[in-house]
Structure formats: structure tokens, C-alpha cells
Design a protein around this nucleic acid. Structure first.
Lengths: 222, 222
DNA sequence: GTCATCATGTAAGCCGTTACATGATTGC
DNA sequence: GCAATCATGTAACGGCTTACATGATGAC
């Protein structure tokens, strides 16, 4: 879960823990509450597994909180000598004792595995949200599968709620009723949102097929 | 959290663990996923604390899954002799080895404390939902406070999201954008839902004051 | 008599939190 | 030099999940 999010963010660019936490809060309102107490151990775990590695820092022009515009190049940006020196020093550390992490090929594979895996958190609300946040890194079929599985789950929830409403519902107080009604409406909205995403996905797919057809057969129909 | 929900359900009527789990799933879509592995220990904890107690079962006409219509009377429904016998037997058990729990006065106080308490889970999404589900058992002021604190929290989230959108937002992919937009809309809807609940609350309060005014001063203004 | 369901419980473990401890850098 | 912030980590603990173990009851 957290590891998935970390890998997803590092896929875009190498970052250090503190910045990672900020972005986690920004992009995913979902898991805005991640604390250092879980973030750093997660990073350490990933480093132990070989999913991420500490890389030499290339400080951008802005040392304060604002965004570094240019992408920090992957490992190897500094000469091997300096990197070796830093390694001898115990760990690769940046300006303020920062430890900047980058994703490794193994980490990429782990990421794919976590994103695709059906395991427990896949049908968790937060699990879906985090996966969607990094859906751009998924294979199109996997992405479509994610969306459709989620849709199916929400529909099932809705059916279950309706069943509960019709069958032996004990008379509930106004608060419980309002809660259930609002929940149902929210689920309905979520489903139509997913429908829009799924439609967009199919459209993209068709466009890609069409383009491929053009390229392969060199047909010509404007 | 779970204990709060258990106490809330038991406030309505004594139940055994298995049934408790079913109702938890029905009423609160939120924590439909509670498992026996957490439910039974929670009940045991509550029994240890004295928040709930096992009571003698009064089997309704329906032994299957359907709802027992009449409220099961509180402890003391069976003669002291039989209760004592059952107690000697080790524990109070019903027909299928069921252990039916009822809330005690101490449990009622614990419930109030948990519902009112600001502690950690109060600003948790699920925490709010569960509290609202049992809001009918709260004092009107506490209930209003709950709703208004929740509203403030959502408004702050919204502001934070808007700030993030205007300031140095790195260009996000379509999925992240859609996720954030949908999240924002959902938060807005949640806020207006809360507004309706808060309005209703004020209306009730005014009505109560008005009625009290009538009763106390015997004034007459139609 | 045996199978599905109802019913209660235990054990191991995951994932996350809070609180605490530490140190580097910058601004005043 | 002192405070605020940036930055990394550790320790203790909480709550909930999965998987497992057990037994009663009713349907067929």
C-alpha cells in the first residue's frame, strides 16, 4: 500500500523521505495522514529488498520548499569516484543529510506486482484510490481490469444495500437513514464516474488499434 | 471504534456476537468488513471492563436468521435461580451455545465517552460515520458539535485541495486529475449533506426551545 | 449420519499510528 | 547563538485481518 505509493512516486523522479511525505499528502488526499513513523521504515524495507536505492543528490536551484522544475537524472549523474566516496562514508546523503531514493528495475517489477495483485488491499477503498493515482504506469489491460473490478464491487455493494432496504429492515432513526441514503448516492456517483473512466479507456484502446491498423496495413480512410 | 459500534447496537437490544456482526455489516456499510477475529476479542474486552454482560437468552419465535420482533428484556428476565445455575455452569449460554450480551450502565457511560471523545478516531472518516450511525443516542449539543467539527474538517480539506491546485502543481496525468476532481466533488457533496443535517438539528433545537418556552411561561404566540 | 450453517474463540501477523530522540541548515 | 524548519530515524503499541480450531444444531 504505502510501498506501492512510494514506488509510484519514485517512478516519476527520485525523492527523499520528507518530500515523499509531502507529495503523498498532496496527490493522495486519501493517505494524507501517512506519518514518518511508517514512511521511513517502509523506505528502509524497500531499500533492504532492493526495490529502491539511495542515489547521489543533484540539488536543484531552489533549496526551499518550492518545486524543482527539471527532472533529477537517475543514478550515475555524479562521477563514480564521488559516489564511491559517499558510499564509503556509510550512506549517500544530500545537502541536509537528505537521503534521496530512486526506484530500481527490481522495484519496478515489485510495483507492477503490487498494482496488479488482487491481494487483500485490491478491494479496499484506499487500495483502489492509490492504484488509480498511479494508473498511468499500468498496462492498459491491467488498468481496465482494475476499473472494472472496482465497478463490480461497488455495484455489488449497492445491490446489497438495496436488498437490506427492502427486506426486514428494522425501523432506523433519521441519522442512520440519512447515513445510508447518502452512502448509496455516493456509491451511485462513484459508479458513473468509473463508467466515464472505463469509456475513456475503451476509446483510447480503439484509437490505438485504429492507429496500429493504419501503420500495419497502410490503409487510408479519413 | 468497534467497541463504540458494539455498544451502540447493544443499546438498542441485547445480541450475541454472530448477530452483532451481521448488523454491523447491514447498518454500517462502512465497517462491513469486521471479522470475528476482532469482534469476539472486542466483546471479551468489554465484558472484562464491565461494559457489557452476558444475559440469559429469551428465544424469540424465530430461531432462524429473521428478526426477532419484540425487544428482549434486560437482565433479570429469568428467575435468579436459573441465572445462578447457568452462572455455575461457567457462562450464560443460549440455545446454540450463544452468548447474548447486554450493555451495562458502565457500558453506557463508556459509550458516551467514546462518542464524545475527540481522541484520534474522531477525525477519521470511519470514526465519523460510526458516530453518526449512533447519533440518536447522543446529547443534542454533542451531536451538533460532531457535525460541525466534521464540517470544518471537510472544508479545511477542500481549501487545502484548492491551494494545491493553484500553487505549483506539477502537471499530473489524466488519472490523477480525475481522481482529485472526483474527490473534490465528493467532499463538496459531503459538506452540503452535513449542512442539511446541521440545519435539521437547529430546527429541532428551536422547536424544543419553543415547546419549553410554552411549557414554562405559558405564553401564547401562534 | 453427515453436511451446511450457526456460533465462539485463538494465534500470528500486517500495517499503521503516536511519541520520542537526534542532528543539520537557515534566518534573524 | 537561538529558534524554526528540514530531515531521519526508533520504540511501543493499537486495531484489525487471515487462518485455524472447535463444537452445537437442524435439515435431509
Amino acid at each position: 500500500m504505502l510501498e506501492m505509493a512510494i514506488l509510484g512516486l519514485l517512478k516519476e523522479q527520485p525523492l527523499h523521505g520528507y518530500e515523499l511525505k509531502k507529495r503523498l499528502g498532496e496527490i493522495l488526499g486519501v493517505l494524507s495522514g501517512v506519518s514518518f513513523g511508517s514512511l521511513y521504515p517502509a523506505l528502509a524495507r524497500l531499500e533492504g529488498t532492493g526495490g529502491v536505492e539511495a542515489v547521489a543528490a543533484e540539488e536543484g536551484s531552489t533549496t526551499n520548499g518550492s518545486v524543482v522544475p527539471e527532472r533529477i537524472p537517475m543514478t550515475g549523474s555524479l562521477g563514480g569516484e564521488r559516489a564511491a566516496f559517499r558510499a564509503r562514508r556509510g550512506a549517500v546523503r544530500g545537502s541536509r543529510g537528505k537521503k534521496i531514493y530512486a526506484i530500481t528495475p527490481a522495484g519496478g517489477r515489485l510495483f507492477d506486482q503490487l498494482m496488479t495483485g488482487e491481494g487483500r488491499s485490491a478491494q479496499d477503498d484506499r487500495g483502489f484510490l492509490v492504484r488509480l493515482a498511479f494508473a498511468c504506469h499500468m498496462a492498459p489491460e491491467a488498468r481496465l481490469g482494475l476499473l472494472e473490478r472496482r465497478r463490480a464491487l461497488l455495484v455489488e455493494r449497492l445491490v446489497r444495500a438495496r436488498l437490506g432496504a427492502t427486506s426486514g429492515r428494522r425501523r432506523l432513526d433519521a441519522y442512520a437513514v440519512s447515513l445510508i441514503e447518502h452512502g448509496t448516492e455516493t456509491t451511485e456517483r462513484d459508479i458513473s464516474w468509473l463508467d466515464r473512466l472505463i469509456d475513456a479507456e475503451h476509446a483510447t484502446e480503439r484509437a490505438a488499434e485504429h492507429a496500429a491498423g493504419h501503420a500495419m496495413t497502410e490503409r487510408d480512410d479519413p
